[in-house]
Design a protein around this nucleic acid. Structure first.
Lengths: 115, 115
DNA sequence: GCTAAACATTGATGGGTGTCAATGTTGCGG
DNA sequence: CCGCAACATTGACACCCATCAATGTTTAGC
């Protein structure tokens, strides 16, 4: 899984951009991946919990209870959030700690403002 | 379909909020609706086209071609965007004109920043 | 090395979703 | 009143997705 850079330099297809060509199909597809990751209530709660957690990180065991979901389901959601570039995973010992990727949410907000 | 207000006053369940209780289940569900509307490449392109359109509005006939989709499919996507509170629909004569709801995208960006 | 704990992965299943063809509805022109 | 044009709606179909049970993998501790 290659990391998915948000708000890439948008390799210009045309020179001097007088009018944005709306939105390319492939660029739209790429951005939709991030919103698809945000399009689930439990994933939104996961992000919120991780952000509010002490030290800005949480392990899976602390996430499976407040959501009332099974552990495999939580792992599945976390994987989607990592692949979307929103969460960072760091394994220390037996535990896996998840934290927000520093500018990720702001980048998504930027996408919305620019669109 | 009732309009879906973004960033509502968040009817407090607790008084003086010292620490946000992460994110409530029903509030998460409500916010996920908006992101679900944004989680499709063609809908992102629709928003982009409408925003960039002259006068800030477009009719369906102008949207069905650049997306290379059938007219019923475009209407379906537009309906989802309207129900998410992102687009506004105004019928004038035979045509239906769609435009961005003024602060909608900024509200979504605000949700991300606050989360 | 063995056991147990913390996660990840796989397989299966029910529900949701994007798309199109066909049809319905509404408004304009004649 | 009639026919056409612009959209909306319905039904059907294929595909994706969220969830769980079961199993695999890795690490710590004894």
């Amino acid at each position: 899984m290659t990391s998915l850079p948000l708000l890439e330099p948008d390799t210009q297809t045309t020179c001097c951009p007088p009018a944005a060509p709306a939105l390319g199909a492939e660029e739209a597809q790429r951005r939709a991946v991030v919103f698809k990751a945000l399009a689930d209530p439990n994933r939104l709660r996961l992000l919120s919990i991780v952000k509010a957690a002490d030290g800005g990180e949480s392990c899976v065991c602390d996430l499976t209870e407040p959501l009332d979901l099974g552990q495999p389901t939580v792992s599945h959601h976390l994987k989607i959030l990592v692949e979307a570039g929103l969460l960072h995973r760091e394994k220390r010992g037996t535990w896996a700690y998840y934290s927000l990727v520093p500018g990720a949410l702001d980048d998504v907000a930027g996408i919305l403002a620019a669109l």
